[in-house]
Amino acid sequence: MNVHFTRIKQLAGCALVGVAAMLAAPAHAGVANLDSQAPMVYNHGEKFLDGGLNFTAQISAYVQSLGITDGLGGTILDGSNPNSCGAIIDCPAGNTSKYYAGWNDGSVDVQRGGGFYSLNSLRFSFFAPVGGQPDGSYGQLVLKATTADGSSVTRSADFAGQDGNGHFMFSTWKLDAEFAALHLTNLNISACLFDGNGGCQNMADWAPYAAQFAIDDLDVALPLPGSAPLLLAGLAGLAAMRRRRAQ
């Protein structure tokens, strides 16, 4: 009888090691580079798919609080076309491919249908409402993550300044190891503007609808196909072993 229980314990130990290995197994890496997207305008709630991720445009949270559920959320722009931003808006520099621009204090939600993902890095820029602004960092890109265990985590990084021609520049943000290890179920990306007193605000009183951003090349890690069923099978096996031990 003792030998029987010893073997069950060994099997359970092996199963636990297997589950731990599945949880720690490297995920499939991918990049949502938006290059397959056509230039497009996205209103509030409209979606597009790229790199295994679902993007949902959102208008300003303040505007939503007023009960408004319509309006421009963002656009896909072409960095290789100098006229992509129109006659007034100043396109960021340092990107000759497609990218997403969040407008008018809006944001974008990034999810993975049916599962979680992790974010390693992305490229980003300030999206100036008008050209000819003095050089400097005007604010931050803000990431508000919801994780698989229901917790909320926030990170922010300063926008880069301007190049020699006065265009705001794209830069690369490599997330810290703690954030990159999170299992994200939703990531809300927005912008804020510095208030001169140490704060950074979305929908700033002195510059309403000017917290705008551009993002590109989201480097993500996705769970390997089939890993979830394997994990469930391993957990089911452990449960069966426990029932046998109880008999």
Rank of each mutant, 00 (worst) to 15 (best):
A38P: 07
A38V: 15
A38H: 10
M40V: 11
Y42S: 00
Y42K: 00
N43T: 09
N43L: 01
N43C: 02
H44Y: 05
E46K: 06
K47W: 05
F48G: 01
F48L: 05
L49R: 13
D50R: 00
D50N: 08
D50L: 03
D50K: 00
G51S: 07
G52N: 07
G52P: 09
L53N: 11
L53A: 12
N54V: 14
N54C: 11
T56A: 02
A57L: 04
Q58Y: 07
I59A: 00
S60L: 01
S60C: 02
A61E: 09
Y62P: 00
V63Q: 08
V63C: 01
V63R: 09
Q64P: 06
S65P: 03
G67I: 09
I68W: 11
I68A: 03
L72K: 00
L72M: 04
T75D: 04
D78V: 08
G79T: 10
G79A: 03
S80N: 12
N81Y: 10
N83L: 14
N83M: 14
S84W: 04
G86D: 05
G86R: 01
G86E: 00
A87Q: 14
I88K: 05
I88V: 14
I89D: 14
C91H: 01
C91S: 07
C91G: 06
P92K: 05
P92H: 07
P92R: 07
P92A: 06
P92W: 11
G94N: 02
N95A: 10
N95S: 10
T96C: 03
T96E: 12
S97V: 12
K98Q: 10
Y99P: 00
Y99G: 02
A101Q: 03
A101P: 01
G102W: 04
W103E: 08
W103A: 10
N104Y: 15
N104V: 13
S107H: 09
S107W: 09
S107R: 05
S107A: 15
V108E: 08
D109F: 07
Q111N: 14
R112Y: 11
G113E: 15
G113I: 15
G114C: 10
G114I: 13
G114M: 11
G115E: 15
G115Y: 08
S118D: 08
L119E: 04
L119R: 04
L119C: 04
L119T: 07
N120Q: 12
S121E: 11
S121R: 09
L122C: 06
L122K: 02
S125H: 06
F126S: 03
F126D: 01
F127E: 12
P129R: 04
V130R: 10
G131W: 08
G132M: 04
P134F: 03
